Amino acid sequence: MEQQKLPNVTLIIILSIASIVLCWCYGILGLILSTIALILATLSNKAYKESPEIYSGIGTLKTGKILAIVGLILNILFIAFIIWFVMAIGWDVLQSGDQQLIQERMEEFFGQ
């Protein structure tokens, strides 16, 4: 019997790469994509463990899972950075839209 490709492996790779690329979009979209990729990778891994003789492509699945984990970590770090930045500068200053005030707060905070 010919081996089949693991289900959703290509989709896992695409979602994982997209989560890394989109981590700069406030981290939310990339976080969603990496979570979906991890869930699909877990389901595909479970299918492989149940019957490894039918499926091929476990290396690609592992690569996709690693990329999804990297994307998840990058997105979490970027969200943490945004939260830190808002706390450091101040939400009221950022909402005011006054570029000069924002620059002054950044200079105060970073000591320039």
Rank of each mutant, 00 (worst) to 15 (best):
K62L: 11
I79S: 07
N45D: 14
N8Q: 07
G71C: 03
E108R: 12
L72H: 02
W84G: 06
D98G: 02
Q3E: 03
Q99E: 14
N45V: 00
V86R: 05
V9F: 01
L43C: 10
L29Q: 04
E2H: 10
I89N: 04
I36T: 06
F110Q: 11
L38Q: 07
I82V: 04
I102K: 05
V93N: 01
L43R: 13
W24I: 14
I36D: 01
I39L: 10
L6F: 08
I58P: 00
N8R: 04
L6M: 11
I66W: 06
K5C: 02
D98S: 02
I13N: 09
K65A: 13
L22G: 05
Q4G: 00
S16D: 10
I13L: 15
W84P: 00
Q99T: 12
S34F: 05
T63A: 14
I89K: 03
Q103W: 04
F109Q: 09
G90W: 13
M1Q: 10
F81Q: 11
I66E: 06
L61S: 12
W84E: 08
I32H: 09
I13T: 04
I73W: 06
I58Y: 10
N8L: 09
L38T: 02
I102M: 12
I73V: 15
E2I: 06
K62V: 04
I12F: 06
S34I: 09
